[in-house]
Amino acid sequence: MSGHFLGRKLGQAAVTIVAIVLLNFVLFRLMPGSPDRILLRNPNATPEAIAAIRERWGLDKPLFPDQLVDYIAATARFDLGDSFKFRGQTVGDVILDRVGPTVLLVGLGELISVIVGLAIGAYAGWKRGGVVDRVGSSVSLVLYSMPYFVIGMPLIVILAAGLGWFPTSGMQDVGAETGFVGGLVDLARHLALPLLTVSLGLIGQYSILMRSAIIETRSEDYITTARAKGLPDGRVLRRHAFPNALLPMVTLIAINFGYVIAGAITAEIVFSWPGLGTLTITALSARDYPVLQGIFLLVAISVVIANLLADLVYGVLDPRVRV
């Protein structure tokens, strides 16, 4: 990979992140009446009290350049301010508490759906028109058309509320801590349904994408050659077609990352999973703008980094990309 390519990609990512930071600032500062609106939660607030709090939040300074400069400097220090809703907690603390559960859910969900989705998609594309293709593709298409919460709600009604196999919500039974193994089992029971929801939603997408990638690869010359040479079908798929079809998938999975998080948000809400999704909703209904800002920043930057990584991985795997 040439330094030029690397530099250009890094530069683009940096510009995007700066733009996100600016967008963040503009979005949340230019709103009418806020954020000092939060003070008015107290109808008894005296003008003196209001002035004091405006000063504390830096709202008494002009928007530009003072507030902007302060904002950028603070963001660079990862200081995102204090939460409006969770008084006495910094945005960093509030968000950090919730990153773990979301990463767990999204990470495992991605892992499962990448493995299962790609396998189904590859097989379906390879044996086009076969039983796996017909069932797999139809189910994938239906899953792809379902919002995550539509997948999740029946799961709760049937598996949790109805049959009682799984807990309906949360991440752990507080107090039911019976050592590390017990805790892990407890976590797994709570994780099962949200994870199933996220995975099902993603499997649909990935298998559809993988199927068409395999179909495209299948028609290429070297595959035809390999098959003509009399190599076993399964071997051609595993050794030749699959790795090559995987190439575009890397980018697609990275681009998809933003949607995965979006899906995870709704899945989290349905299952009260204490991650960034439920935090977003809490912050949204309390108009906790600092926290919303922080979440947006975090998610946007992770998506940018995911894209950057995909570009780099793609660059490593595919020599044609080296410009």
Partner: peptide, 14 residues
């Protein structure tokens, strides 16, 4: 990455 996570999140008090 996925395997490392539960250890970090799981409760450890007995």
């Amino acid at each position: 990455a996925a395997l490392a996570l539960p250890a970090a999140v799981g409760p450890a008090v007995a």
